[in-house]
Design a protein around this nucleic acid. Structure first.
Lengths: 249, 249
DNA sequence: GCGTCCGTATGACGTTCATCACATTGACGT
DNA sequence: ACGTCAATGTGATGAACGTCATACGGACGC
């Protein structure tokens, strides 16, 4: 489940074996990133106001309820977005991927962060202070449009989560839904789509609002029904069509 | 449950007894509306590209899955945003109030509308065509910022919905949560906060992802426990603190 | 005044799932 | 090789809730 990397920031220039881009202008992956793919002039402004940092796995970028300090642009690595109840039950709202902007809604509205953000991998993150970010948006239509696009995506993704949580009749259905969603990033093999699941059953449970035991049981059930095959951290979807048929949403 | 208005567009200049504002520039409530509260110059552009229409109760502004035609600015009335499963189960995602912009995320991303929108009251709506709206945003930072604010609000509201659906342990908790949310717009009386609920048990059930019967039962239960009192379409929260104590989210 | 319709109320019953309890497996360090 | 700890697997049990069935009540039209 864990990735073999040193847990200390040991050896610059490449801590954690990350491919670090110190300035956005010569970032090699900028064009692929929806938010960062802006004109040279705009990126130059972005570059001037951003602070780059490398975080180890398990770092908290921000915490639910905290007043917004600014936005975090995820250059590399994955970030877990969670929300928790008083009793300590945790719901994983989303796993953010590289290229996403985190904390934008809270920053724009000057409202507390609505979720917590924790790195799942060693990650490079560009931070922009609240006032700098707002000034950036207010003086640059391109940046503002790209932010609106990011927010729209976040909204759509949240909407999908709501559908899954609110419309699915059973937990099996939610889990099938999750597997099929993941299939989009899976690798096709003769056996079926192969997913590399870097999450524990506990974390999967937190993604669909259920308990660890239930996830274990349902996965067992799926195996017995020859819908999936589990090999280490890989899951093969043997019968994707049947899984899709279980989903009513 | 229903409002006494003629169901046909009968007598201009005020069909449905609505206070219609034909041009945004002399709209008397513009300043109170987060999105519309922009400079005269920007509002003039908005006014030039918008189409005003009055819809009767029950009109579909757009349908989930449909390609985005543009955005809808809700000038007056309420709009029910829903999403449905294949089996016909419906989830009410949100009741939009006057001042909200609907369909912006889909329009910005050129992705199908993620929800359906149906008027709950006779409503005045300003429609802006997709290309006009995008051009408006791309050439006007103020409009773009106000749109980003709208999107941020929608995201936060969706996030709250996710919390309630995913973290609540029981349906009672979700219902208590809903009642307490509604209390914000309620009226204080000696008996406790008074809510005017213009929704049927069926619709309430669709808001929290349960069945009509369960809503009826839980409300009965709340009555027996002296937490609420129901009088027609009014609900009095007799013991708001106890309701809040039930909520773990 | 009476039937019709929609919304609400309530009972019976079975399924799903959370909870608690404990066993098993696998990775990793010493 | 062995101990340790996290992750996974599995059983027993009861509460919560969906489903079906049926009854009640108020609004409205004729």
């Amino acid at each position: 489940m864990s990735i073999a990397v040193p847990e200390r920031r040991s050896a610059p220039p490449t801590p954690y074996n990350l491919d670090v881009h110190n300035t956005c202008l010569d970032c090699s992956v900028r064009a692929e990133r929806l938010f960062c793919n802006m004109s040279i002039e705009t990126v130059a402004v972005l570059d001037a106001i951003k602070f780059t940092a490398i975080y180890p796995k398990g770092s908290l970028l921000f915490v639910e309820g905290e007043d917004p300090r600014g936005v975090f642009i995820l250059c590399s690595g994955r970030v877990k977005l969670t929300t928790s109840s008083r009793e300590g039950k945790t719901l994983i709202v989303k796993i953010a991927e590289a290229g996403e902007v985190l904390g934008a809604s809270a920053t724009i509205l000057s409202q507390p962060y609505e979720v917590s953000a924790e790195t799942l991998d060693p990650s490079q993150v560009n931070f922009i202070k609240r006032e700098d970010f707002l000034r950036f948006l207010n003086t640059n239509v391109e940046a503002c449009m790209h932010t609106a696009e990011q927010l729209s995506q976040k909204y759509q993704s949240a909407q999908r989560e709501i559908r899954s949580l609110g419309l699915a009749r059973t937990t099996s259905e939610k889990l099938a839904n999750l597997l099929v969603d993941w299939a989009a990033e899976g690798e096709e093999t003769p056996k079926g789509t192969r997913l590399t699941v870097l999450l524990t059953h506990e974390e999967i449970a937190q993604m669909i609002g259920t308990t660890r035991e239930t996830v274990t049981r349902i996965l067992s059930d799926f195996r017995k029904k020859q819908l999936i095959e589990v090999k280490g951290s890989s899951i093969f979807l043997l019968a994707r069509a049947k899984l899709e048929a279980m989903i009513s949403t």
